[in-house]
Design a protein around this nucleic acid. Structure first.
Lengths: 223, 223
DNA sequence: CGAACGGTTGATTAGCCTCAACAACCGTGG
DNA sequence: CCACGGTTGTTGAGGCTAATCAACCGTTCG
């Protein structure tokens, strides 16, 4: 596990493959996952200085990252308006994700939180959409999912079990998920169907951007 | 109340005085406050497009904002490295705030949430510190505070009442708060004393930056 | 003056946590 | 080959926290 130092980091990371997670741990010892990082996401430890408590980064799977010198990255942003856009878009998307989840965690019950997490991660895991019959894999344990949505692993198990018994979805070991009824799932997640559709189209569009960014990141890689 | 549109906004706002709040409302009708905006904070509706559901902005007090044309702002950022730093710092600080609060809401009990909110808002309200004997005013109702930390207003009342009875703090009408015992308050908030001290110093340092930024924002104001 | 709002308090209920036991599945090593 | 510990998930029982419903008070405001 990599602890984010308080000092200035001289590099930024661009995730090429694998899943990472950003988490915080309370003084009481409880862990809260702030966000997951998926391929195409940028991670800038330097922007994390000045924050109150530190954040941990850990890998959920094997992962490959492009390490980019910070000055090179900033220079690149300054010179390329489109890249500057990309940077702020990635940041805004991260903020939007966490805000949306905050709403579910602050006001939603266990079903809402779990359903929303599955929708969010399912959408991000395969950048194409989220439809009935779709199968995907999330490299998470129920413990990790609980730390993500603020539930105990026991209650995660019960809640998912209820969803399975109701026929909304089924899942095999290690979070191999098959969605049987997207409408119900989205409804439980309190996602506006219109928003869901909008998110699907923007996500699909973003995979092109991500592909281009990945190429760029490779070129900028520090040696 | 201003609903953030999905289309591109052509301006950004720099808050000169007053308190605003950003909130989301679930389909079930529950409101979650994402963050408060205080003087010196920047608000960029344009970076909010592509997000799943929209965000509302409402004013808690009378407020004055500098309205800056978006292209002017971006140009300014591109030309001034220090301003670029400022922009990313403000964004990072916003992200850090919400992440830190997510930890409390996801894993903390009512006392922790309330104590943390009072610490966070107290620190931001007067940019100098947070010490025993300090008095400050938060322009919030208990209902708003509840929407902020994910509790019902009834439970907010009970929890604050308990803190008052224990002698940790006292407060008059409309959230005039006097802190009697910072150590205990910080402990309940699960704030590492070391982090608290660090936050106080950076906040103090930031007031200079904010003052400079406010001047800059006034000059950039669109007519 | 009545109406609306913010806050307090009581009683009851529901949801989630905790503890605990157990099953299934790994990889390891005898 | 099987025994073993470790991890993950499932299920049950009980307890506690916070939500809900409701009544009430004080203040403000039309």
């Amino acid at each position: 596990m990599l602890q984010i130092a308080n000092g200035k980091s001289t590099v930024v990371y661009f995730l090429l493959s694998g899943w990472l997670c950003l988490s915080k741990t309370s003084l009481a010892g409880d862990r809260q996952i702030i966000d997951f990082l998926l391929p195409g996401n940028l991670f800038d430890p330097g922007s994390g200085d000045e924050i109150m408590a530190s954040t941990d980064v850990s890998a959920l799977t094997d992962a490959r990252m492009a390490v980019i010198r910070r000055d090179v990255w900033l220079q690149y942003l300054a010179n390329h308006r489109s890249a500057q856009d990309l940077g702020s878009r990635l940041a805004a998307a991260g903020y939007a994700r966490i805000a949306e989840r905050l709403l579910r965690i602050g006001k939603g019950n266990a079903e809402t939180r779990i359903a929303y997490a599955i929708c969010e991660l399912g959408l991000r895991a395969n950048r194409h959409g989220l439809v009935t019959g779709q199968k995907f894999h999330l490299p998470l344990t129920q413990q990790v999912l609980g730390d993500f949505v603020g539930l105990s692993s026991v209650h995660v198990s019960r809640t998912i079990g209820r969803l399975v018994r109701r026929g909304v979805l089924s899942y095999g070991d290690h979070m191999d998920i098959v969605i049987h009824d997207v409408e119900t799932l989205a409804e439980l997640a309190e996602i506006d169907p219109h928003d869901l559709q909008a998110e699907i189209t923007t996500l699909a569009g973003r995979s092109r951007i991500a592909a281009a960014a990945t190429d760029g990141a490779r070129r900028l890689t520090a040696r």
